[in-house]
Design a binder for these strands. Sequence first.
DNA 1: AAGGTTAATGTTTTT
DNA 2: CATTAACCTT
Length: 742
Amino acid sequence: MTPHLSGLNPVQLQAVEALDGPVLVLAGAGTGKTRVLTSRLVHLLATARAMPSQILAVTFTNKAANEMRHRVEVMLGRPVEGWWLGTFHSIGTRILRRHAELAGLRTNFTILDADDQVRLLKQIMAAEHIDDKKWPARVLMGVIQRWKDRGLLPEQVTAGEDSEVANGGALNIYRQYQERLRTLNAVDFGDLLLLNLALFKSRPDVLEDYQRRFRYILVDEYQDTNVSQYLWLRLLAQGHRNICCVGDDDQSIYGWRGAEVGNILKFEQDFPGAQVIRLEQNYRSTARILAAASGLIAHNQDRLGKTLWTETRDVEPGEKLRLRSVWDGEDEARFVGEEIEALQRAKQPLAQTAILVRAGFQTREFEERLMTLGVPYRVIGGPRFYERQEIRDAMAYLRVVNQPDDDLAFERVVNLPRRGIGDTTLRAAHALARAKRVSLTTACRELAQTDELKPAARRALSGFLNDLDRWRAAVDRMAHPELAEMVLEESGYVAMWRESKAAEAPGRLDNLKEMIPAMAEFESLAGFLEHVSLVMEATTESQGDMVSIMTLHAAKGLEFDTVFLPGWEEELFPNRRTLDEGGAKALEEERRLAYVGLTRARRRVIITHAQHRRVFNAWIACLPSRFIGELPADEVELDGAPGLAPAGQLGRAASDDAPTWRSPPRWQQPRGFGRSNPPLIEGSAREIDATPTSRFASGARVFHQKFGYGTVAGVDGDKLDIEFDKAGRKKVMDSFVQRATA
DNA sequence: AAGGTTAATGTTTTT
DNA sequence: CATTAACCTT
């Protein structure tokens, strides 16, 4: 047997060897998915079934693509040249650049990021007199993005779908937005796929060429594809029909970004005669963790159904999951910190420990605690290098040099540092640009020729345009890192920070210095700019033995010995806002997120829920997440102070009490209703929807569990301003205090 | 054109 | 509370 096939279990082997025809591999968490993917690619190449250039392998992240490339090359023992391996977006870009002129673009088109998109939209909305207050640009952006996710160009959006947003003007804005992008010789992320679709539609000959080319297509994380990606794949696969999609419907957590679980659920209908292979043997987690995760995810309706199992099931089930009830966020961080120190004392590597949270803001308390304890940690997915202000500014300079029509970049730097090109000048330029349907640079050039501007402004503008011309002339005769250095110096941008007295100025200069050598890795300025647009993340993988803190979304695909899952509370997780927006479907996605969290753990899971949390400036009572109630009781042990734990919750579905997502959380229901626990704290029932009026008036003596006795100093709806005897003046929810008894 | 003040607004975010 | 964007004043 060939070496790349050895060590695979029978089902994995089946998945690797099923090369022809449509194949769906349902790969549960920890079942060796990556192994199968890479082996399949190696199998294709090793058996010479396909040349590298005939293989299309698509992933969602650059990380996944890089890992796949690396593992295939290691297994094969040689580098692979010329294959189409990359993210949906990078391959979409590659195809689009080859045929740019057919899509109304030039080859050097710019890829805009979310920030630029919003700024562009704001401009269009302002011109259309749409109230930014009523319809924030971000919301409209979301609407447009969603259309793009579904593969819809403006002319394909049906009138009925338009009405709800921006008084029926969203489609109009979308149309203008697309027009404007073409003028700017720019695309956004959605376009990278969408314009591929349009290209394939208008030029069947081009499509046919790719259909012939890609004899074998491989797709990772298929459950996360949106409609546009799905259509793209389906078109490309129509030639040879050798498409293999790998995914796990239970790990679909990007629905809010347009991913359609439906794509994976209906694969067999889309590709008749498809083989469906289920990878169910888990090599990662203990039997207990698997049982808990399976028990939880069984509460979802929309799933293909898989049962994960492990060979050690009966022999050594592993530790029970631990459930800990804590007083508040601070207490939670303290508890997690202590547990981590205990692991440290037990000589467990910190790198095998992770804290996985629902939302980014939750990381702060853990960071603070670990910092105090001196436990090394890293936060994954924080603010990224290329999102820093100074880097974005520098990038804008380079963009505008590389592509003169990139208005958003132009606007960003035209008066940075200040060179006397202010509002008035720009307003005139904008007006001219809009009237003539040209880019801002072009408009500015024209403006500098007329005497519409005051002499000072005119001189400043001409000066800047001359600089741009000079820099552009240097693109071909200078190495791009040197060019960048020159641009940043001559523009006065670096000087601006050098002279700045701001505390963060030195740091910003350091970052700029760091950027220049990083550019040398790319063959050209354009190559560097594309990398930044498509990859965004800095390649500096910090190493060392550290605890990882990240969101559940960021944790997908990773694994750790010990996983802490804090914040398992109603409202936070499942997230209230998500539920409000997405209903029952969203609840299932939240549950999948919980499932992803549990299945990251190899040996140990510690779940916590806080009884109170500070939300902005008020304290609120929190109930344990319904997901806690959905965990099989046998697999979980209650940890710590008895009485505080949600006894009686465990092992029965908490969602029995709150069966639908619309029903209010249990603590809002009348006392004694159903099987609800009595509130842990007297008076913790709180009104949400009704306009709240406080039971208390100014001057009332009250008692608070955390802050002790105090006097009500002011009442604002259900919020009380209380002067506490010991804790000082605080704003507190009405529901959180009781009348002082003494 | 620049700086300072006030008001709004707080999930997840592979590309 | 803490951050950011919009606004208003000089």
